[in-house]
Design a protein around this nucleic acid. Sequence first.
DNA 1: ATACAGCTTGGAGTTAACTCCAAGTCAAGA
DNA 2: TCTTGACTTGGAGTTAACTCCAAGCTGTAT
Lengths: 130, 130
Amino acid sequence: MTIKEVCETHDITPDTLRYYERVGVIPTVNRTKGGIRDYSEEDVKWVENAICMRNAGVPVEMLIEYVKLFQEGDATLMARRDLLAEAREDVQAQLDKFQATLDRLNYKISRYEEALRTGVLSWNEETYKK
Amino acid sequence: MTIKEVCETHDITPDTLRYYERVGVIPTVNRTKGGIRDYSEEDVKWVENAICMRNAGVPVEMLIEYVKLFQEGDATLMARRDLLAEAREDVQAQLDKFQATLDRLNYKISRYEEALRTGVLSWNEETYKK
DNA sequence: ATACAGCTTGGAGTTAACTCCAAGTCAAGA
DNA sequence: TCTTGACTTGGAGTTAACTCCAAGCTGTAT
C-alpha cells in the first residue's frame, strides 16, 4: 500500500505520516527496492492507532514511548499496560471536561433560543449554574 | 478581587489571565486608581466561561468573536447563538472522538490485563475491532 | 529515451496558545 | 521614609505538532 493510498483512506497528509514514522509514533515502514514506502496491513493498524490516539490528544511523546516498549518485546508488557492506563486516565479526564463544556453550551444556547423566540431579552449577564 | 485570588480559585496563571484580557477572550477588567486589576463578579463569570470553553478546545479566536458580539449589544443575539451552536458542533464531534479513543484504550488494556493474568502472551499485533 | 508526476530525505518554517522578561509603579510593614 | 514583594505594560520567547521546502530519485506513459 502506498503512502498516498493510506492518506486517502485515513484522511491524513503524507507529511504527517512521514513525520510520525520519523519520530517513532509508528514503527519503520518497509520500502520497495527503489526506497518508496510500502505499508503492510500491520503498518496501517499502527497508523490507525496513532490517528485515534492523537484525536484524543494523547501526546506524540507517549505514543513514541509505547512503540519503543512494544519493540523491546514481552518484558515490557506491564510497562505498556501502565502507559495505556495513564493515557486512559488523561482521556477520561478530558472527556469529562468536554461534557461539562457541552452542558454549558447547551444551557447558553437554550437561553438564546428562548430570547429569540419570545423577543424578551431578559439577561445581560453571563450566568451559568450547573 | 485581585488577579491572585482569581488565579488561586480557578487554577490559572496571572500571565494567562492577562493574556486573555489583552486579546479579548474576556472583556476589560476595571483597575484601582493605582492601575491594579479588580475583578468583579461578572468578570469572574467571564473568566470561568473562558476556562470552560478552552478546556474543550474552543479556539481563543472564537471566544474573542463572542465577546466582541456581546459588546455590540442585542442586535447580535442571533449571531451569538449561531457562534455557540457552531462551537457545540465542534465540541460534540471532539467528544465522540474521545469516546472512540477511550473504547480503544479499554479494549487494549483488557487484553494486556488478560495476558498478564494468564501468562499467555497470545498476540503480537496491534488489533482493535469496534 | 524522455517527460513528468510522485516519491524520498534532512532540515527549516509555521501556528496557536501560552509563558517569560525587563523596566517601572504601587502599597503595606518596620 | 525606606524596603520589599506584588502588580503593571509591551514585547519577546517557548512548545507541541505539524507543515513546507529544496534537491534529488523513481517509475509509468508516450
